[in-house]
Design a protein around this nucleic acid. Structure first.
Lengths: 205, 205
DNA sequence: TGTACATCAGTGAACGCGCGTTCACTGATGTAC
DNA sequence: TGTACATCAGTGAACGCGCGTTCACTGATGTAC
């Protein structure tokens, strides 16, 4: 937050950061253009030098979020090392870790009402993130006999749904709600059981 | 919508219905007290005869939603008949069916920002719904050898998370988004693989 | 059955507020000569 | 190095709007006698 006089320096990013802070603190509804401007130490009118309007700020935040998300997933995937299974699990954990470490981005991406199809850029960024999960799923699927192999997209969709559900239902600290399970454990055990169901983890039957 | 003159008859329910319609159409943000009043054919001020304010309407809708949700889940569970497994699967399907048939209720319950702990009534209603899923999970868990049986709450949480994730990521028709999978198939296959992982459906290993 | 009256669900005008957005402007910066 | 000027990122005042909420009110309903 280095602000020296009339010109801001990097107002665009400062506005996105302010928006993320507001979203994190008060939910997607609690974000207004005016307040984001105030957060960045600037008049509401100045916002229009960098964004088309209120929604455009959230969209920009979501776009950044998808890029970061992809990076984290990709880093967790680690080119499928040390094993397809370990890499896949790590990717699942990274999903939850992202949601917990960057709630503002997560909300902008999934809860703000911004459609992935708002701009081609966002659609592309979201597709890249999905791509990482599907790559991880493919590598893992290769270990299942071809005739009983489910489409990789199907089970990456399962893992996405499970992860998203865990985030939304169990990783949001609604005041007063005390969840009986640690979200990380919940996701880990859920994916474990699921992978056993696919025959990718040995059962003792 | 039978409105005969000065007195409305059942304004309270009419307001809830108007709120649900608005929420369904425009999302949780697109709901305003004034517009709900207009939808019910009444002055905004009249709302205060029945509700404490804007949020109170959503809370009332959510409460009704939880009651209906519980009924549907309970009906699908059907006292565990014809089998624990079939009853459990039916309950999972009912989760998704509720979200698709009553999107307004679903949004009020899960996406509106209304906390389950807002009132004891809502908390209780939500707990009842969860109770049905846990009962179904318990009956099923009884078929797993006791020493390797996971807590019923754990795997009912898994199924809730998977179901919720499927609803949020794949059952919302964001304009322009074309999902490769039918949500019902996605949930069904996901639960199937999961149950196989628990050893509740025979594998051929 | 008819009248007086209490109850209560609605009206409609008014309010203050913060919002998003616009506009003509001005101060700072960087560049050409 | 110094000056003139173009560029552009910000200001600040103003706007119209719809919001939630309040208030004194009034019309409709139901009940006591």
């Amino acid at each position: 937050m280095k602000k020296q006089g009339y010109h801001h320096g990097n107002l665009r990013q400062a506005l996105i950061d302010a928006a993320l802070a507001l979203i994190t603190e008060k939910g997607p509804t609690g974000f207004t253009l005016s307040e984001a401007a105030k957060g960045a130490g600037v008049t509401p009118a100045a916002v229009y030098r960098h964004f088309e309007g209120r929604e455009d700020i959230i969209a920009a935040a979501a776009l950044q979020g998808y890029a970061l998300f992809t990076d984290l997933l990709d880093h967790a995937y680690n080119n499928g090392q040390p094993s397809a299974l370990a890499a896949f699990s790590a990717t699942g954990r990274a999903y939850l870790a992202f949601a917990r470490r960057y709630p503002g981005y997560y909300i902008a991406m999934f809860e703000s009402g911004i459609s992935v199809n708002r701009t081609p850029e966002i659609a592309h960024a979201a597709a890249r993130a999905r791509g990482v999960l599907e790559t991880a799923a493919s590598a893992l699927a290769a270990r299942i006999p071809q005739d009983k192999r489910p489409p990789a997209r199907l089970f990456s969709a399962h893992v996405m749904a499970l992860s998203h559900g865990v985030v939304e239902l169990f990783a949001r600290n609604s005041p007063g709600t005390n969840h009986p399970f640690d979200p990380e454990d919940l996701l880990e055990s859920g994916i474990g059981i699921y992978l056993r169901g696919l025959g990718l983890i040995p059962t003792d039957c």
